[in-house]
Design a protein around this nucleic acid. Structure first.
Lengths: 260, 260
DNA sequence: CATCGATTCAATCGATTGATTCAAACAGAT
DNA sequence: ATCTGTTTGAATCAATCGATTGAATCGATG
């Protein structure tokens, strides 16, 4: 303590003292400074702030303050704010989409189940997301929040990044849904699919929805079995929505009588 | 033209010339400057920019440039950026919620239909939105975009504004849904309701979804009859989703076999 | 220990943000 | 036409934005 006083000391001596101290603490049992690299601290802080405030609402100064690094470290390690956020988004979503495509490939080589083909595709879409939400190395629960925020962010940079990078994946799944729902017109399918994908993303981004998930104890999932249980909760909801018939004259007449 | 040259002129003369010119054009047949007040021009420009870029992404200078008014006019007429956006949001959503509550009141005095009670509530929620989307005085199609963007905006100011101002309305509709779905657990209802409301908002905010709506010619609605037709397209989708059973052991087993 | 590339640091850049100023111009009442 | 309160305009404020600089310091290598 007294060594660290403000009295003038030899700069070299002071630095060597600090260096020795940090090395000592790293070797100690408590390990007060967890060995997380500057790059990773910036990425993690950026992810947390993006979830809470979006792209425009997150400044580099807020990031570097939370990450306890120098402001210039962002441009040194990542080049620019956009390149940083691009990495933050893709390091999560790329993993998700790769697993989704892997499962879809496997599913299409075996062929869709005639009766439950729709549930199979839904499972292919959502099980990877649920699995990643349990993987702390992939952000855990924050993974779902990141996903929701990313698809809702109004910044042109974010929207173009998602649209361009995952266009082919979306096309693959739309084609799969089209085969499972042969009677649904292409335009109807596009709308309902987009509706569902945006829906899940938006809902998962909302804090109170996740709080309710926790209340249902379906957020304490610990293994794939629990994921299936959660999907059994969600899949009928989504499958029923996708299978619902469209624009039957009878329904119009019924609604007309009811909505007066 | 030559009068407007950069040569020194009497300030008063120049101003009077400009004034005379604008007055003349206002009296002319073409009427190049539509008599929209400064206040309304700011509100309209703010709405358009909020839809496109969100709260954080919209600067007062972008607003005043689009509205062709002076920068100081914003703070003079509205006090601050937040007060301006608060007005922009509430002038639309207040109308929507008032009409929703009016219809809900009427529905509850008559009593819910036993068979189609759920569709009645859904109609109560969505018909006012569809009607407003046809009313150019209420923003027309932009009304839906505003709604979607508002519920997705990450700015704390926007989120707290919506949560506080419309909490009671949401509670009213949740209670109504609970009566129409007596077998659905309260937590399940909360989640699904939030899921649906966020869903519609998020979907309507997406440009390509509205483009698909246009392709289905359900966006060319001109009267209440057409609204009912559109609702006949959407209501079965939503009702089926809400009515879908939850967590049946049979479905879990089926999914387990399928998701391998 | 000396050297060198990699990294961190404080300081600062020009641009943009929301907000404010005060004089000029305005519309309506008398 | 004159007066009076309201509205507009150009200029500018301090604060913050993303980005950059060059020196200081780091860890690894010879």
């Amino acid at each position: 303590m007294s060594i660290m006083s403000s009295q003038p000391v030899f700069a070299l001596d002071l630095q060597s003292l600090i260096r020795a101290k940090s090395v000592a603490s790293a070797a100690s049992a408590s390990d007060q400074r967890p060995k997380v690299s500057t790059k990773d601290r910036i990425l993690n802080a950026t992810e947390a702030l993006f979830i809470a405030r979006g792209f425009d609402g997150t400044s580099l100064r807020a990031i570097t303050t939370d990450a306890a690094v120098n402001l210039a470290a962002v441009n040194y390690h990542f080049g620019s704010k956009e390149e940083l956020f691009s990495l933050v988004l893709t390091r999560r979503i790329d993993v998700l989409n790769a697993e989704r495509l892997r499962r879809l490939d496997a599913l299409e080589t075996v062929g869709l189940d005639g009766v439950h083909g729709l549930e199979q595709i839904i499972a292919t879409l959502f099980l990877p997301a649920l699995a990643l939400a349990r993987d702390t190395a992939q952000g855990g629960e924050d993974f779902l929040r990141l996903l929701g925020r990313a698809y809702a962010d109004p910044a042109p940079f974010v929207r173009s990044l998602l649209a361009e990078r995952y266009a082919s994946t979306n096309a693959r799944f739309k084609a799969a849904f089209a085969r499972a729902l042969p009677d649904l017109a292409n335009e109807d399918l596009s709308m309902r699919l987009h509706f569902i994908l945006d829906s899940v993303a938006a809902s998962l981004a909302a804090d109170d929805v996740r709080r309710q998930l926790k209340g249902l104890k379906i957020n304490a999932r610990a293994n794939d079995e629990d994921d299936l249980q959660f999907l059994a909760y969600l899949a009928p909801f989504l499958a029923a929505a996708l299978r619902a018939a469209v624009r039957q004259p009878k329904q119009i007449a019924a609604l007309k009588a009811l909505a007066a």
